[in-house]
């Protein structure tokens, strides 16, 4: 690669919580890798149709451009709260019976879990800073009654990771969309982002 020099005036909007965007990009790549290794270890095909599995927050949405900033951030926050629980379930299932000996695999699940928790925390803080209502956190068992066989657990885990990877893309675009309504130059970071930024 050649030597480079950046001209001033990078787009102001992207200054908005750059650490959160970095976290999301890291999550996207880790979640995509985890999805592939998960499918391989469970002997599943990622093209498997998972439409019938519910209880997993799906990233697809209609009229994306028209969603309000508050609703956008709330949707994101609720989704990542749900993913925290769902990933916990996956980790438990893998440890207890699906891949009990594969400690490295468990670590990669835990790593994504930590990122999801960090992201949820940052999203919550951003909503406070932007004066949006933070939704109440509801703990619901998302599994359907019939889903306790190994195969059902496996494909459910596949859907969780598939949707998590999709959500990371949506969240990045959502954050860009939210930052459009801010004044250029506003660097709006949750306390933890700023702390992280100062450590660098």
């Amino acid at each position: 690669m050649a030597s480079t020099e950046r001209l001033p005036g990078a787009s102001q909007h992207h200054e908005f919580c750059r650490p959160t965007l970095y976290l999301l990009r890291k999550m996207r790549s880790d979640a995509s890798l985890l999805l592939e290794s998960y499918a391989e270890k469970q002997g599943l095909d990622t093209n498997f149709s998972l439409d019938l599995i519910d209880g997993v927050p799906v990233a697809e949405t209609e009229c994306w451009a028209e969603i309000s900033d508050a609703e956008r951030l709330q949707d994101n926050l609720k989704a990542y709260w749900a993913f925290e629980i769902l990933l916990e379930e996956i980790l438990e299932e893998q440890r207890s019976n699906l891949t009990p000996a594969d400690v490295a695999f468990h670590e990669s699940i835990k790593s994504v879990m930590l990122q999801v928790t960090a992201l949820a925390y940052q999203l919550e803080e951003l909503m406070v800073i932007l004066n949006h209502n933070v939704p109440a956190r509801e703990y619901e068992d998302r599994r359907s009654p019939g889903e306790n066989g190994s195969f059902e657990k496996k494909i459910r885990g596949l859907k969780v990771l598939q949707q998590l990877a999709q959500w990371t893309v949506r969240s990045i675009k959502d954050l860009h969309q939210v930052s459009k309504s801010l004044q250029p130059g506003t660097v709006l970071c949750a306390a933890s982002c700023t702390a992280q930024a100062q450590e660098k």
């Binding site: 690669m1 050649a2 030597s3 480079t4 020099e5 950046r6 001209l7 005036g9 990078a10 787009s11 992207h14």
Partner: peptide, 24 residues
């Protein structure tokens, strides 16, 4: 980018912005 007299391209990836200064 490359000089016309050389076939080998040089590459640089830019994560944002729409300008760049080639310095070499």
């Amino acid at each position: 980018y490359r000089p016309l007299i050389i076939d080998q391209w040089q590459h640089v990836e830019l994560s944002d912005g729409t300008s760049h200064i080639i310095t070499d």
